[in-house]
Amino acid sequence: MKETIQIEKLLSEYAPLMARIAATFEANKSLQDELIQEMSLAVWRAFEGASKDSDSGFRGEASVKTFVAKVAHNKAVDHVIKEQRRQEFTHDGEFDSSHTTSASSSRDATLQENAMDLMTGLRQLEIKYRQVLALLLEGFSQLEIANMLGIKESAVAKRVSRARQQLTQIMEQQP
């Protein structure tokens, strides 16, 4: 029971993080919601499993945030693979602005437009570039990203540099 409450707290805290990751990989709102739920379930099961299994899980991670982000990213990549196989994966980059948290807030319209452009731009990047940039934008260090992706830190630096170049070009092309 105590563990359930702990996991519920964890999901509440990291739901926005998972939602951002889902939005980075999926443009369709209903599929995004499905993906967030799949991520939550995966995080729950991983957290539960890790609590029982002392050899693996999040104990070795730098932080719970890293653990959640890794599980969420894995689920997102899994989702992309499945959608590719179903040949239903949308590349139209549409973004439903009515579902952003900023819609209800008093932030100005320009800021919101920038946010939409960025998400749309991110979704146009190759998965490997999208991943590093999304994690960097979440505030993870290059070392943390390297551990999450299972690649060298130097490879992360290269990918970040190329991803930034590509995203800048995409953002400049956007009307």
């Binding site: 519920e8 999901l11 509440s12 739901a15 926005p16 998972m18 939602a19 951002r20 889902a22 939005a23 709102k29 995004q32 967030i36 739920q37 939550s40 379930l41 729950w44 099961r45 973004f95 579902h99 952003t100 948290t101 900023s102 819609a103 209800s104 932030r107 800021l111 919101q112 920038n114 946010a115 939409m116 452009d117 960025l118 998400m119 991110l122 999304a134 960097l136 934008l137 979440e138 505030g139 930034r164 995203l167």
Partner: peptide
């Protein structure tokens, strides 16, 4: 990068966490 980080956070889709937890519990 700072601008992008801020824009990225601004683009957070809204999530009904209570509903999410309920659905996750049911799926589990």
């Amino acid at each position: 990068l700072a601008q992008w980080q801020s824009a990225y956070k601004d683009a957070t889709p809204s999530v009904d966490t209570d509903a999410l937890i309920k659905e996750t519990k049911s799926a589990r």
